[in-house]
Every structure is written in structure tokens, then in C-alpha cells.
């Protein structure tokens, strides 16, 4: 009888000691994890746009960047971020939104340019704490392009008779051929966006605005040329970007870190949000989807 009771006491004792050891090991593991000098690399590729059209996979949206940065912010072990970008540019507003997120992020962010990081891609990169590009990367293209689609001929071909009742003289300017005055209006819009781009690069890169204007002809530069012009900080790839991010963050020996998979609850939330927009697109009759598509082009698109 005594032996049995001693056995039970021994079992409880072993469990208690194991629990204390586990707690201590967990603490030590967490301390080591937080003390590790980690630089996370996140990649974004595709055109920059506000929302991803139904069925499109490659695109850079503010939502994508926000999710990635939010996941990074929750991980105390990460000390710096390398953002690998591969884009030819895109929406002005989306570029500005992403650029703000990069600028305001509490950790150092270094941009590593892939094949191409031009126009809107450069707008985003300029806001970072450092830019690394391959000598063969295509970058620059600092400028604005505004496209207006004149659908008059198409409507005529389809036998669609459009009647316009408008309140202002220029309200229907996107649905017919532009007048000279209207071209001037849109040119002003374009110039305004161009000015914003130049000011942003001048301020973020600490460059003379006049010098930026000289470079901002819309010309594409190779990485090596951009480096000579001061638009890029270093020539190299991801490894160099990690080292630069480590320097900016004051790390001695930065290590590459892969972003962990989102938690099941996070995935469930994202799935619910994405499924809602996908479902609403699928439930639309085909004619409505065509009209939605045309509406994308009726209004001018101003892109970096």
C-alpha cells in the first residue's frame, strides 16, 4: 500500500518538475527568438492597383501590403524588413497608399528591386530606408500616364445610342472625344500627379527637386544608371538588401527570416473577405460583368 502511494507521489512530482522545466525552456526559447537578429523578406509582384480584379492573381494592392506588414508587426522577433518588388507601376493612389505604409512602418524597410521596379514601383521604393537594385534591374520611369478611352465609335458600332443629360459642361468628357479645353484639364491633372511624384522622390531621397525633374522624363534606367544618378543606394540582390536592412536596424549579424504562415483564424478572416468579393462577382449576370469591365475604362486611369 505504501509503495503504491509513493508511486503516485513520484508521478505527480515528476509532472511538476517537468512543468517547471518546460516553462523555463519556453521562456528561454522566446528570449532567444526575440534576441535573434531577423530580417524578413516579403515579395510583391504585378501591377499596382487599388483592388485585384476577379480572377487576377498577380497584383500589388494596399490590402496585400497591409496584411504582410500587420503579420510582421505581430512578430517581436523581426528587426527589419526587405520588400522585394517586381512591378512596372500602376495606380497613383495605390502607390501613394503603399508608400505611406512603408514610410510609417515602425521597423526599417529596405526595398530590393527584382526585374523591374519602375514608376509606381519606384514611388514605393523611394519611401523606404534604402534601395538595392541589380545592375540589370529596370527602374526609374518617374512620370505619369493618363489614359482616356473614347468609346463613341464602339457605341456606334454596337448600335448603342447614348443620350446625355448633364449638369456641367465637362461631366461627360470621358464618354466622347475630348475637346482641346478638356485635354488641357486632363493635362493639368497629369502635371499635378507628376509634381507629387517629383516632390515625393526629392523629399524621400533628400535630392534637389530640380535634379529630380531632370531625371523624371519618364525614362527607364538600368539599375547601374539609377545608382549613378543617386536613385538607388546599392547594387546587388536580396542578400545585399538583407545586409543593408541589418545596417539600418543596427544589427551585427542579420539572418534571413521567412514569414510564418498566417494563423487559421487570420486565414479564415481573409478568406471571408476575399470570398465575398469573388462571390458577388460570380453572382453578377454576364451582361453586368461586361458593363462593369467597360466602366473600368470609361473613367480616366492615372498611373505612375
Amino acid at each position: 500500500m505504501q509503495a503504491r502511494r509513493i508511486l503516485v507521489i513520484v508521478v505527480v512530482f515528476i509532472a511538476a518538475v517537468s512543468a517547471v522545466l518546460s516553462f523555463y525552456l519556453l521562456e528561454r526559447e522566446e528570449t532567444r527568438r526575440v534576441a535573434a537578429e531577423r530580417v524578413v523578406v516579403v515579395s510583391f509582384s504585378g501591377p499596382i492597383m487599388e483592388t485585384r480584379p476577379l480572377g487576377m492573381t498577380g497584383a500589388i494592392t494596399p490590402q496585400d501590403v497591409r496584411r504582410a506588414l500587420s503579420t510582421i508587426a505581430d512578430d517581436r522577433s523581426i528587426d527589419a524588413v526587405v520588400m522585394r518588388i517586381d512591378t512596372s507601376g500602376g495606380s497613383v493612389a495605390a502607390s501613394q497608399e503603399i508608400s505611406s505604409m512603408v514610410e510609417d512602418f515602425h521597423l526599417p524597410v529596405v526595398v530590393s528591386m527584382a526585374d523591374m521596379a519602375a514608376s509606381g514601383g519606384y514611388y514605393i521604393a523611394a519611401a523606404s530606408d534604402g534601395i538595392v537594385a541589380h545592375p540589370g534591374t529596370m527602374t526609374g520611369s518617374i512620370g505619369v500616364i493618363l489614359t482616356v478611352m473614347n468609346l463613341e465609335g464602339l457605341y456606334e458600332k454596337l448600335g448603342i445610342d447614348v443620350e446625355v443629360i448633364k449638369s456641367g459642361e465637362h461631366k461627360d468628357m470621358m464618354q466622347r472625344a475630348l475637346t482641346e479645353e478638356e485635354r488641357g484639364i486632363l493635362q493639368e491633372l497629369s502635371d499635378e500627379a507628376y509634381g507629387q511624384f517629383v516632390d515625393h522622390v526629392a523629399e524621400s531621397r533628400d535630392m534637389d527637386p530640380a535634379r529630380v525633374r531632370e531625371l523624371a522624363t519618364g525614362e527607364i534606367f538600368m539599375g547601374s544608371q539609377a545608382y549613378e544618378h543617386g536613385l538607388v543606394d546599392e547594387l546587388g540582390g536580396e542578400e545585399e538588401a538583407i545586409q543593408l536592412a541589418g545596417e539600418v536596424a543596427g544589427l551585427n549579424d542579420p539572418e534571413r527570416y521567412e514569414l510564418p504562415s498566417p494563423s487559421p483564424f487570420q486565414l479564415l478572416h481573409w478568406l471571408a473577405v476575399d470570398a465575398r468579393s469573388a462571390l458577388s462577382g460570380l453572382l453578377l449576370p454576364e451582361e453586368m460583368r461586361w458593363i462593369e469591365m467597360f466602366e473600368e475604362y470609361i473613367y480616366p486611369r492615372i498611373n505612375y
Binding site: 508521478v11 505527480v12 515528476i14 509532472a15 517537468s18 512543468a19 522545466l21 518546460s22 525552456l25
Partner: peptide
């Protein structure tokens, strides 16, 4: 479940 604690360790 007490045995599970050292197993977890």
C-alpha cells in the same frame, strides 16, 4: 495526463 507533461518536455 500527468504523464503527458514529461512527454511534452
Amino acid at each position: 495526463a500527468m504523464f503527458g507533461v514529461p512527454a511534452g518536455l
